[in-house]
Nucleic acid binder design. Structure first.
Lengths: 338, 338
DNA sequence: TTGTACGCGTTATCAC
DNA sequence: GTGATAACGCGTACAA
């Protein structure tokens, strides 16, 4: 399992390593025939320059690291497709690591990537991440970093965001316009900015339309189907069904729907549902789920572009925050049907 | 953006780099106090040994590369969770790359990972991969390699498989036992072993039960929802509806279901459906989809274990093929209801 | 046009 | 117990 190195090629061709190097880098003067001969022999021998050594020398790697919390839900994979689309064209390789919603794993991933000398990172913070000191440190050293979706207000770096407040507001208004009054929000983990924004959008919509609410109108939950199931189960047991629910994302909405169905309740007749961060599931389930669609692909592409700008800027760089637009796809689950 | 190196620490502490190295590697004689002092200062300075340099020297990296064709469908992400579970415990980092079903991207990914000196790779071949010469080359050099799901019979390396033939056979028998006779198979791309195995399972079940079939019983399609939609649309236009369809995977089954619904047909009354490689979707859609469930998590864990065995074997290693078991989850979409 | 020699950050081997 | 140095594979300034 020995790597073929530049030396092997040099030895075989009876020339110096620098000549080989020059042939590959095509920058300095070198006789055309020599070059072609070298390239041919090298190819035949299965040689290609070792990027590890190159990274060590150049202190950069043409690699970009991506760290995401999970990829069970379709959101992150779709963002990554967008990221890759932009970066691969520019000659970068994309290394993906997942933190599994753990702060510790996330930090290890970041350090691994840093040690691999990636030229920059695109990150979405894990649920467990409260402490962002290491990111502050990276930013202070000028390390190119772009955050998306799960960001921290403490970090001054480029960000790609979705206007969670606005779309939660619209989604809630949609329920209000349908005539629902007793509306509950399944909110995400309170530590996350996206959860807070969606919650505030929800509350402000209620306020605007003078819909009464109290602390029981907000039920904090997670991001998974099981979280929606659990909370719905509780509501059913307490015999305290709302008329409508705005869920923090599709999986929790779907969990709620499953549980409602299991107990014989009909969506939207007994309880109307709206999801968020639409996935393919939304239009496939029965009834089809009203949901806020995020431009996942575009989020990825934008994040990649912001990162490239920073990498190419050589230090004189002002972080930008890009807020992307979405849409509310209205389907049967939230309609007022009798 | 300058990395703090061992030299910086040595300079600060007025000692040699070897002493610092020793303090970190804790292998050679070194005074306890010296060691602790060094470690403390290093931490304070934010120094940690550069794994790139270490990789260059040791010719290995404690990193494992994973290359998958896509992660839009939930199958691959779930496998990766299993892979990580095993490898992280053993101190390996997992680098994930996706080929986007392209042979060229896949090959680039593999070479990138190889150049990063990963200690081994776990790969599922892309749709586009017909030529496996590079893998043959890697294997011939003793590079640790494990394939799963999308494998090639030409490659002599460890593999983790699912008994596609058997479960396609069972799934088809299930349809036959329900009383369906005119059964069609939406098969996967014919270049893939899994497609062939599922197709053969399907055909042999028909043969066993003396169900007539001809070339129109097999319709070659892709792996995406859109593929199922397209083929179903054709069947409807040709006014040539089968009684039941065994789809090569859930997305194609779901695509077929969508199209049937759109045209006002009822599943399973007009056409019964069975999927394969069950995803969460299966039980969420309406009607719930009968599907063959694969042990995704276990596939990942097994692949990781086989890879570790090979890495730790130091060359004297016989490739193993592990075939994992699944189950047929019978739901409404395939029942004979009147 | 080509070769020599150094440095990137480590660790291992040898002296001391 | 500690320091000097070669080596890993490469790119490049400088010498030839």
């Amino acid at each position: 399992m020995k790597h073929i190195t530049i030396k092997d090629v040099a030895k075989k061709l009876n020339c110096s390593v620098s000549t080989i190097s020059r042939a590959f880098n095509d920058k300095y003067d070198i006789r055309k025939e020599t070059r072609e001969h070298i390239l041919a022999t090298a190819k035949e021998m299965g040689y290609s320059p070792n990027p590890i050594a190159k990274s060590l020398l150049k202190q950069c790697s043409n690699q970009i690291g991506v760290v995401i919390p999970e990829f069970i839900n379709a959101f992150f994979p779709e963002v990554i497709i967008g990221i890759q689309e932009v970066l691969i064209k520019k000659g970068y390789q994309v290394l993906i690591m997942q933190s599994n919603e753990s702060h510790i794993t996330e930090l290890e991933n970041v350090k691994t990537l840093e040690n691999n000398m990636v030229d920059g990172m695109i990150i979405s913070l894990s649920l467990g991440t409260k402490n962002v000191d290491y990111y502050k440190y990276l930013i202070s050293r000028g390390f190119p970093l772009v955050l998306f979706n799960r960001v921290s207000n403490e970090l001054e770096t480029s960000k790609v965001l979705f206007d969670d407040y606005k779309w939660a507001f619209f989604a809630t208004e949609h329920l209000i316009y349908q005539g629902y009054v007793k509306i509950v929000h399944f909110s995400g983990p309170s530590g996350l900015v996206i959860s807070q924004n969606r919650k505030n959008g929800f509350l402000d919509a209620l306020r605007k339309h003078k819909i009464p609410f109290d602390e029981s109108s907000i039920i904090e939950t997670g991001f998974m189907i099981s979280d929606g199931e659990r909370e719905m189960e509780k509501l059913i047991n307490e015999n305290n069904l709302p008329e409508a629910i705005l869920a923090v994302n599709d999986p929790t909405a779907i969990g709620a729907m499953k549980t409602l169905k299991k107990h014989g309740y009909k969506v939207p007749y007994d309880v109307a549902l709206v999801g968020f961060t639409e996935t393919k599931l939304a239009e496939l389930i029965d009834p089809p789920l009203t949901s806020v669609a995020q431009p996942t692909h575009e989020i990825g592409k934008t994040a990649a572009r912001l990162l490239l700008e920073q990498i190419e800027s050589n230090g004189i760089f002002v972080p930008q925050t890009v807020i992307l637009n979405g849409r509310l796809n209205i389907r049967e689950s939230s309609m007022k049907l009798k």
